[in-house]
Amino acid sequence: MEFGLSDDQRMLQETVDRALAVAADLEIVRKAAGDDAAAQAAIDDAVAALGLSGIMVPEAHGGAGLGLLDAAVVQEMLGRHVTPSPFMANAGLAAIAIARAGTPAQQDTWLPKLAAGDARFAAALSEAAGARETAGVSAEGGRLTGKALFALETRSATHVIVADRERKLHLVAMDAAGLTAHRMRSIDRTRETAELVFDSVEAEPLDGANDPAAVTHDLIAAGRVLLAADTLGAGQRMIEKAVAYAMEREQFGRTIGSFQAVKHLCAEMAARLEPCRSLIWFAAHTMDAEPDEFPVMAALAKSHTAETGTFVARTATEVHGGMGFTDLMGLHYWFKRIGLNRQLLGGPETVRADAARMQGYGDAA
């Protein structure tokens, strides 16, 4: 059996890559990361022009009807170009949440809006992925109270998908009375996260699923796959930059790429990162093809790629020598993207513990 991307998926990958090479050039990303509204708007317009918001929305609701593997292909390219874009929470997680947990009426209302870009979604799932003593959201009587940390991609969102303490999902307008959003500054300035405080905020429960907690479980798994794909793209780009630098930087009258030690560093980065690609692809494939395996495979893809990405980020920076730590080179954008991806929806230790519990080892989740 040969497992790989289809011709259509490769075309999608190449199309997004070419578009972002122009729209998310490093200098433009640098400005957007520095809160330049015009630069961010230019990136948003270019991503919107690709028509990606409806990639996972069923065709019956105006979307492309594609799967998580297709979304992962796009997310890899976004990571490759460290693009400040709300694709993961909006086109990925919100589409899955509404399609799987929403009632038919909710699907008819919200999925066409998502596909058309008339509604843009953030996602607040961190507490469902790993309990925190100081955070969590409770639902009672159609209202939410509590606090959600590290809500994903809130910057331009009109609505947010929220998981409560019972792992049930709710849809909330970002301008709802009683909802306060505080921007959380992380090391990665290319991805927006926020602390959301709910004070008896009116919410629309997504209560069309027989087992809402199972939908949330799969939603977290999908987020982990997309984060892994983002890290894969960022790591691949860091390797390419390290190799290019090694081929032009000279010491003692020779390019440093001719030194065996540097060759070994570059080869080890490539050898470690490449297996992550098939692991991520297979994890994404199992969401629809082998759903019983999906959460475990997603956890393994996220934890392994996070560790590998950390190695690649550190090693690629070392190949650049002292220049690797300067703002001039810009490597830190990929370095920090990989660092934040590592922790979102659970660090490697947490995610591996989840995988162990799902397979019957340790205490039940």
Rank of each mutant, 00 (worst) to 15 (best):
P295Q: 09
Q75H: 04
G309D: 03
R165P: 05
A356W: 08
G34K: 13
I96G: 00
F198Y: 12
F150K: 12
E248N: 13
A267Y: 13
T109W: 01
A95L: 03
L149C: 02
A234E: 02
A283T: 05
A283V: 08
R100N: 12
L144R: 04
K147D: 05
T134E: 10
H285V: 00
D70K: 08
G346F: 03
T315M: 09
L50D: 10
L219D: 07
G235M: 08
T317P: 00
A33I: 01
A23C: 08
A19M: 13
L152R: 06
G102H: 01
A123W: 06
E240K: 11
Q9W: 01
C276W: 03
R120Y: 01
A271I: 03
A284W: 10
F311N: 04
A355H: 06
L78K: 04
A301W: 04
M358E: 08
D45H: 14
R249N: 11
V262D: 06
R18Q: 15
G141Y: 06
A123I: 00
E195L: 13
E192G: 10
V74K: 01
I338N: 00
L196W: 09
F198A: 03
V47P: 07
P86E: 10
D25I: 00
T109S: 09
T350D: 10
N210D: 15
A128Q: 05
E290L: 14
D354H: 15
V172S: 06
A229V: 06
W110E: 01
G322M: 15
Q75D: 05
L273T: 07
A221I: 10
T308W: 04
G321F: 05
G102Q: 04
Q251F: 14
H285I: 00
A283S: 12
V215D: 05
V137K: 03
M88P: 00
A261V: 12
T255I: 14
T310E: 13
G321K: 05
L345D: 02
